[in-house]
Computed example of a mutant assay.
Amino acid sequence: MTNTELITIAAILIGPIFAVLISLWLTNKKQERDQKLVVLRMLLSTRHLPADPGFSVAINLVPVEFSSSRPVMSAYKEFIRAVQDPAAADPNAPPLQSTSAKTTKLIFEIVRHLGFEILESDIQHAGYAAAGFVDRDNLLLDSQRATKNIADILWIQTRLLAGESWDSIQSSPVPNIESPPEEKGKKKK
């Protein structure tokens, strides 16, 4: 066998293996980028609505998708600190402003990591949330608060109707909710 034949046989055997390996590597890189883009899109679309569940999901995915990026992880840690203790993050700024600035910084670092050219000021100011959606979200939050207040009032009313004195109710202000007795023959879960 000549050298040319050996090279040809080696190329026939090794060429497809390298092609498959390169294809798998490229596919993996594309999937990683796509997952990072999902997080970025979720953050960009909900950045002005931090109570949105999608925002929380995206924030919680940052360490998973961007763990290898120091600037992103640094901005993420600053954001978490600002959320957990807004006064410590920036004592001179109002709490919501400090958190908003940290959110913008985090999104900006993700944008830079992914190679987009978006200004940090555009991230901060160029967003849209329909007034009706914000109103609906605020109404939902108000109704959830009201539901708790109604439950508390009904609890007090029930105790008053049961003959308890107001002083007795005030001395144990937290409802003592007992689980219902189990029926005979039912197994405990």
Results as ranks from 00 to 15, higher is better:
residue 8 T to S: 12
residue 8 T to E: 10
residue 9 I to Q: 09
residue 13 L to P: 01
residue 15 G to I: 09
residue 20 V to C: 10
residue 22 I to E: 13
residue 24 L to T: 05
residue 25 W to H: 03
residue 25 W to S: 14
residue 27 T to R: 15
residue 28 N to A: 13
residue 28 N to C: 02
residue 31 Q to T: 01
residue 33 R to S: 05
residue 33 R to L: 06
residue 35 Q to C: 02
residue 36 K to E: 03
residue 40 L to V: 00
residue 40 L to W: 00
residue 41 R to S: 15
residue 42 M to C: 03
residue 42 M to S: 04
residue 47 R to P: 11
residue 47 R to E: 08
residue 48 H to Q: 13
residue 49 L to K: 12
residue 51 A to P: 03
residue 52 D to Y: 12
residue 53 P to M: 03
residue 53 P to V: 08
residue 54 G to A: 03
residue 57 V to R: 09
residue 58 A to S: 07
residue 59 I to R: 00
residue 64 V to I: 15
residue 64 V to Q: 07
residue 64 V to M: 15
residue 68 S to F: 05
residue 70 R to F: 14
residue 71 P to H: 03
residue 74 S to P: 06
residue 77 K to Y: 12
residue 77 K to T: 10
residue 80 I to R: 10
residue 80 I to Y: 12
residue 81 R to T: 14
residue 82 A to Q: 09
residue 86 P to H: 07
residue 89 A to M: 06
residue 89 A to N: 04
residue 89 A to I: 03
residue 91 P to E: 06
residue 93 A to Q: 15
residue 93 A to W: 00
residue 94 P to C: 02
residue 99 T to A: 04
residue 99 T to S: 05
residue 100 S to M: 12
residue 103 T to K: 15
residue 105 K to N: 13
residue 106 L to K: 12
residue 107 I to E: 13
residue 107 I to N: 02
residue 108 F to Y: 15
residue 110 I to M: 11
residue 112 R to V: 08
residue 117 E to S: 07
residue 117 E to F: 05
residue 119 L to I: 00
residue 122 D to C: 01
residue 123 I to E: 03
residue 125 H to A: 12
residue 127 G to Y: 02
residue 128 Y to S: 11
residue 128 Y to N: 14
residue 134 V to H: 07
residue 139 L to M: 13
residue 140 L to P: 04
residue 147 T to H: 09
residue 147 T to M: 02
residue 149 N to V: 11
residue 151 A to I: 11
residue 152 D to Q: 10
residue 155 W to K: 08
residue 159 R to K: 15
residue 160 L to G: 09
residue 162 A to W: 06
residue 163 G to S: 13
residue 168 S to R: 09
residue 168 S to A: 09
residue 171 S to K: 04
residue 173 P to K: 05
residue 175 P to F: 00
residue 176 N to V: 12
residue 176 N to H: 13
residue 178 E to G: 06
residue 180 P to C: 14
residue 181 P to E: 06
residue 181 P to G: 09
residue 182 E to P: 02
residue 183 E to H: 02
residue 185 G to E: 04
residue 185 G to M: 01
